[in-house]
Amino acid sequence: MNIEKINYKGNPNIGVFMFSNDKITLVPKDTDDKILNIVAKVLGSRVLRITLGGMNIVGIFVAGNNKGLLLSPLVREDEYRLIKSSFDGNVAIVKTRFTAVGNVILVNDRAAYVHPDAFDELKNYVKEYLEVEIVEKGTIAEIPTVGSAAYVNNIGGIVHPEASDREIEYLSNLFGVKMDVGTVNFGIGFIRSGLVGNNRGLLVGDRTTGPEIMRISKIFG
Score class of each variant (00 low, 15 high):
Gly138Ser: 08
Thr139His: 01
Asn154Glu: 12
Ser86Ala: 08
Asn153Ala: 11
Leu122Gly: 08
Gly156Trp: 00
Ala150Val: 05
Gly89Asp: 11
Phe186Met: 11
Ala163Arg: 05
Glu136Met: 13
Glu167Arg: 03
Ile191Phe: 10
Asp117Trp: 06
Tyr151Cys: 13
Val101Pro: 04
Val184Arg: 04
Ile105Ser: 14
Ser86Trp: 00
Ile143Phe: 02
Val152Ile: 13
Pro161Glu: 05
Val132Cys: 13
Asp88His: 11
Leu171Cys: 11
Asp109Asn: 15
Val177Ala: 12
Phe190Trp: 00
Ile143Arg: 00
Gly156Leu: 07
Gly176Cys: 09
Arg110Met: 01
Ser85Met: 08
Arg97Phe: 00
Val177Thr: 07
Glu162Trp: 00
Pro161Gly: 05
Lys123Ala: 07
Val94Cys: 14
Val159His: 04
Gly182Asp: 11
Glu121Gly: 06
Leu130Tyr: 10
Gly147Val: 05
Glu121Ser: 03
Ile158Gly: 10
Asn185Gly: 08
Arg110Cys: 03
Asn154His: 08
Val152Asn: 14
Lys137Met: 06
His160Gln: 05
Val94Phe: 06
Val132Pro: 12
Ala149Cys: 02
Asn153Asp: 15
Glu162Lys: 09
Asn124Lys: 13
Phe190His: 00
Val181Leu: 07
Gly102Trp: 12
Ile188His: 02
Lys137His: 03
Pro161His: 06
Val177Tyr: 13
Asp180Phe: 03
Gly189Trp: 01
Ile93Leu: 05
Ser164Gly: 14
Val146Phe: 06
Asp117Gln: 09
Ala100Thr: 15
Ser164Cys: 12
